[in-house]
């Protein structure tokens, strides 16, 4: 049998999901079940709610998430470079500084347009 360390990962995940699900089910079955209408309402400071979470949300969340993707990809490339730092020498440093420089222009653009200012 060819050994792969991902067997460990699979076993760990299945075991953990099993245990935590067991705890959840235990909690559901061990507690009393006394239902009344007030408990079923959404907890919103006592104001009768229309039972939907619809509200106007800021578009900044979307922007934060997109910018996170872009910088996350950059971080991944930086990890690849950092692993081979000694091998790639000065040439590698110049390459990566060029890469970071272009993204730094993007970062300065974010700061300048105040795209991430949470004033609301």
């Amino acid at each position: 049998m060819i050994y792969s360390p991902y067997y460990n990962v699979l076993v760990v995940f299945i075991a953990l999901i099993g245990i935590i699900t067991l705890i959840s089910l235990l909690a559901i079955f061990l507690g009393p079940k006394k239902e009344n209408q007030a408990k079923k309402e959404a907890y919103e400071c006592g104001i009768p709610s229309p039972h939907t979470a619809q509200q106007k949300l800021s578009v900044k969340f979307y922007l934060v998430a997109i910018l996170f993707i872009l910088f996350d990809i950059e971080v991944i490339f930086l990890y690849l470079w950092a692993l081979n730092f000694q091998e790639l020498g000065w040439f590698g440093i110049i390459e990566i500084f060029l890469f970071l420089g272009i993204l730094l222009v993007g970062y300065l653009y974010i700061l300048q347009t105040k795209a991430l200012d949470w004033e609301s």
Binding site: A27, L30, G31, P32, K33, K39, K40, A42, H51, T52
Partner: peptide, 10 residues
């Protein structure tokens, strides 16, 4: 563990 597990509707 023995607390009631809330079951809010919706």
């Amino acid at each position: 563990l023995f607390k009631e597990d809330g079951n809010p509707s919706y």
